[in-house]
């Protein structure tokens, strides 16, 4: 349940950013979650709800947008789209030697009322 830890980090970062921006009521938080990050978005939403209960973010929506993944093929030196961690190179059907995109979890923006 590492999503709980992530939810606490979201609470900390958003609280800090809102304070720095001079305060305000948060309406929503936009998060980009790479499809190869190993995070269950539903579990993150549930964890977030638990963590923000009785905080200033209790009414703020967490909006998670999946971000696509990319990998690099060792055999043909091609970069290809990865829908899952098992996605293989469409040319030579080998798994990606290196994942180049889709492992990040980022807070993109915070919308205030």
């Amino acid at each position: 349940m590492h999503e709980l830890t992530l939810a606490f980090h979201i609470l900390d970062i958003v609280t800090e950013e809102v304070k720095r921006a001079g305060g305000g009521t948060v309406e929503s938080i936009q998060v980009e979650a790479g499809v190869l990050a190993g995070v269950d978005n539903e579990a993150l939403l549930q964890a977030y709800k638990m963590v923000v209960e009785d905080t200033a973010l209790a009414v703020a929506d967490l909006i998670i947008k999946p971000a696509s993944g990319k990998g690099h093929c060792r055999d043909c030196d091609m970069e290809f789209m990865m829908e899952s961690i098992f996605s293989c190179c469409p040319e030579c059907h080998q798994p990606a030697l290196k994942i180049t995109e889709g492992q990040d979890l980022r807070i993109q923006s915070i919308t205030l009322k």
């Binding site: 809102v18 993109q108 923006s109």
Partner: peptide, 16 residues
């Protein structure tokens, strides 16, 4: 705009 947007673009695991 009544909806103010703070651009953050921070990795959630940045602190770690």
């Amino acid at each position: 705009d009544p909806h103010r947007v703070i651009e953050v673009r921070k990795n959630i695991l940045q602190q770690n």
